[in-house]
């Protein structure tokens, strides 16, 4: 995934919801957009988005509110062994 973010592993956003932060991220690295979102603009299901240690699915999904110091993580499935 980092090949689409100029190898950056983290990104600071002022977005106050998961949706806004992701839009901010994709706006900065436009090639990343296709990897994260499907044709309908929804998050692809091999990716997990966490706010702190909680899956956004157990919170308010992409509408989950973020504070200034919240850490949002995008976790892709990997399969190597």
């Amino acid at each position: 995934m980092r090949k689409f973010t100029e190898n950056n592993a983290s990104f600071d956003s002022t977005g106050n919801t998961v949706q806004a932060a992701l839009a901010d991220l994709v706006g900065t690295y436009d090639l990343l957009g296709k990897q994260l979102l499907n044709e309908e603009g929804k998050l692809r299901s091999f990716l997990k988005v966490y706010v702190g240690d909680e899956d956004i699915k157990a919170l308010d999904g992409v509408d989950t509110a973020l504070k200034e110091d919240t850490v949002l993580s995008i976790i892709p499935a990997i399969a190597g062994g």
């Binding site: 990897q35 692809r44 299901s45 091999f46 997990k48 892709p76 499935a77 990997i78 399969a79």
Partner: peptide
């Protein structure tokens, strides 16, 4: 955890 696999070639 992961309902679906990534599209082939992506990961």
């Amino acid at each position: 955890l992961f309902p679906e696999p990534p599209p082939p070639g992506l990961v």
